[in-house]
Design a protein around this nucleic acid. Structure first.
Lengths: 104, 104
DNA sequence: TAGGTATATTACTTTTAAGTAAGTTATTGC
DNA sequence: GCAATAACTTACTTAAAAGTAATATACCTA
């Protein structure tokens, strides 16, 4: 945990309070995905931000990275238990965004 | 809605995918608050980011701003219907952050 | 040996978020 | 007339997020 955080929500935001991290986690809800496949699920993200975001999510224990020693390289990402515990939140955030389409 | 967004969650993140916006919304769940009181609920936020964030939340229709023509000035913020519809998500995000305290 | 494949990394730039600190307004009460 | 008050605004700076484009690896196949 960090220093001087008064509200648990504040801590949550330090882990996933960015534009791309929830998207990445969301697309892993259906199960592990190869790096390239996951990235194609989010065509708007740049290659750089994708790598940077998965690195940080891994560091924070929300996803894990599995490397297969083959050529060409194969890497799979999947949610950890901690990452999985965000499932209902991620689905709700997606549904909420969808409802907005109706409202506006 | 924005252009070229493939996933509803992406839209959600363009509205509240920052460090402070969910915090502000969260503290308004219990009802309207005066500007100063709301800000004191989030001591970590700077005056500037507070103003900037509430401006954007208002522009995006998540909160409303009520000005009382008195001296010294009195301004109240409250969630709009759209803002209120985030209630369960905001509470879940806060609970999730709280559980992390146990886990780590 | 050139091109393809998948997964990156690196260097560089731009944009956005965030912080610091001072100033503004319009009154009331001392 | 001056301090206090609440809610900002402005100017300036720093830090973080995000984008672009080129390069690296390491093998396979044509």
């Amino acid at each position: 945990m960090n220093k001087e955080i008064t509200c648990p929500l504040h801590y949550t935001m330090t882990l996933i309070g960015t534009k791309w991290k929830p998207l990445i986690l969301f697309h892993l809800l259906e199960g592990p995905l190869r790096s390239g496949v996951l990235q194609k699920h989010i065509p708007e993200i740049s290659n750089k931000m994708f790598t940077q975001s998965v690195r940080e999510l891994e560091k924070d224990g929300l996803i894990s990275r599995k490397i297969y020693p083959v050529v060409p390289p194969k890497v799979e990402y999947q949610l950890t238990k901690k990452g999985c515990s965000l499932e209902s939140i991620l689905r709700s955030l997606d549904l909420w965004g969808g409802n907005e389409n109706f409202n506006s």
